[in-house]
């Protein structure tokens, strides 16, 4: 059957990435999250309190985020419920993001630069902080530049590693990245930019 069509074309992963259809293959859009109520309302963001973003839209039997939350900010009645966040209760401790088996939780600290970095750097005003779970190599270092990607691996912006938290309990690393505020909710993955030597 294949011979009549000639030799199939050799393709690389990058081209396949272009060919994949968005639907039904693990892609979550910001719109999906908004519809599910997983994005914080404007007034919460205005307050500048940490907001956990749960990319968790299915009823699966899983409860670690709820179990580890010290303030009861993650509500779940039965193990198959989707986690529901009570925004005001979150202290930004990141335990849920460390524990989540799906690495589905990022934590956004709106207006982080304005509150914590003012006077220390010129671009402070526009920088927000995002905590991203990470289990790959190389492990980013403080101060290093990283490429920041969205949920479909589209490049968003460059970010700067603010701190790296190693969780001895869960083994997942949290990379805290400074990014321009406008890509904070989109940011979901980082890659280290390191000169190969």
């Amino acid at each position: 059957m294949s011979s009549s069509e000639g030799k199939p074309k050799r393709v690389e992963a990058e081209e396949l990435l272009e060919m994949q259809k968005e639907l039904n293959a693990g892609y979550i859009s910001l719109e999906d999250l908004r519809r599910a109520g997983n994005l914080p309302p404007g007034e919460i963001v205005e307050k500048g309190i940490p907001v956990p973003i749960f990319d968790c839209l299915e009823n699966i039997p899983c409860t670690p985020c709820h179990d580890v939350c010290p303030t009861g900010a993650v509500v779940m009645e039965t193990m198959n419920d989707k986690p529901k966040v009570i925004w005001e209760k979150c202290t930004g401790c990141t335990l849920c993001a460390q524990a989540c088996p799906g690495l589905a939780i990022t934590i956004v600290y709106p207006k982080f630069g304005e509150k914590r970095l003012k006077g220390k750097r010129p671009d402070a005003e526009k920088l927000w902080l995002v905590s991203i779970p990470y289990e790959m190599l190389p492990i980013p270092k403080k101060g290093e530049k990283v490429r920041v990607y969205d949920r479909g691996h589209r490049y968003l912006c460059d970010g700067e590693v603010y701190t790296v938290i190693k969780s001895p309990r869960f083994g997942t690393i949290l990379v805290n990245v400074l990014v321009p505020g406008e890509c904070a909710f989109e940011a979901k993955y980082v890659e280290v930019i390191r000169d190969e030597q």
Binding site: Q20, K21, A25, G26, A104, H153
Partner: peptide, 18 residues
Amino acid sequence: AYLVHASKIRRMGIPVLM
């Protein structure tokens, strides 16, 4: 797959072709 597992590799840029 669980959406969370699938989206883990999607965000890394591993092509998933249905």
